[in-house]
Design a protein around this nucleic acid. Structure first.
Length: 263
DNA sequence: AAGAATGTTATGTA
DNA sequence: CTACATAACATTCT
């Protein structure tokens, strides 16, 4: 274990807070969950997500903060953990299972104030009951920046990500380059509803599938990237067959169909 | 085996 | 203070 990489022992159910990030299961069993847990002898009170930030509240008042970033991953091991785990940043363990966290952008122990500071700088999270969509609309409506860029900005709204931004814009027939200030309240309402629906579906599926299930059968067996979306990472639009284009927005490619999403 | 990738923030410039 | 671009960081897979 490298210096400074403290290992914490806790247990939890992550399935509701990972937003399309899948837990890699190292054994045939699908998922691990636990009701109660200990953190170095301290009870885990709960896990909460704001956007893609995960917070672990412990009975000693401290709050763990994890952000998976691009590479962060939880691996579930049934039974005892592998001994050799030099890159593990957090270990979640109970007698029958171990979940190891590797590669996160953030993994730290802090206070409730540290958590509040992070939450304060985030826009409304479409997955949360307490989200106020009006806040997001107001920050969009006074910007000229393209909506495709704004959807990735955490202070506009939090937790959307590159797949859902492309798929939500597609579902609303909205070109990613449309300026924020050109988004009407009605158009925003549709977009917000789509994002909420898609993210909730992701929680149910524990992966990202944006296909309308009345229209498309779920892909069976192993699916590759670009098989569970309409435009994201596709060569051709699933709906109309037009070649998919990308535009760089927020430093990342935004996939869109020029026919289904006219200017 | 270089390069891409389901993310975000800090920092510099205008 | 706002807006925008770029760099930085994490790791695995093809």
């Amino acid at each position: 274990m490298p210096e400074g990489h403290t290992v914490h022992r806790i247990a939890l159910d992550h399935s509701k807070v990972l937003r399309g990030k899948r837990i890699a299961v190292s054994s045939p069993q699908r998922r691990f969950a636990a009701d109660a847990a200990l953190v170095d002898g301290v009870r885990l009170l709960g896990i909460e997500a704001y956007g893609k930030h995960l917070f672990y509240s412990w009975a000693n008042g401290l709050v763990g903060h994890v952000h998976l970033g691009l590479f962060g991953k939880f691996r579930v091991h049934r039974g005892t953990a592998p001994i050799d785990a030099p890159t593990v940043r957090m270990r979640l363990a109970v007698p029958k299972a171990t979940i190891d966290l590797t590669g996160p952008t953030d993994c730290a122990i802090g206070t409730a104030e540290d958590r509040d500071r992070i939450v304060q700088r985030l826009g409304p999270d479409p997955l949360r009951e307490d989200a106020d969509p009006q806040r997001a609309f107001e920050s969009i409506a006074r910007r000229v920046a393209p909506i495709g860029q704004l959807l990735l900005e955490q202070k506009v709204m939090s937790g959307v990500g590159n797949v859902y931004r492309a798929e939500a814009l597609f579902a609303n027939g909205m070109h990613p380059n449309r300026p924020g200030r050109a988004i009407t309240p009605e158009a925003f309402a549709g977009l917000w509803t789509t994002v909420v629906t898609m993210l909730r579906q992701g929680v149910v599926d524990d992966r990202i599938i944006t296909l309308d299930r009345d229209e498309y059968e779920l892909p069976s067996g192993r699916t590759r990237r670009g098989e569970t979306t309409y435009v994201y990472h596709r060569d051709l639009c699933l709906r109309c067959g037009t070649p998919i284009l990308t535009v760089d927005l927020g430093g990342r490619p935004c996939y869109y169909c020029p026919v289904c999403q006219p200017d």
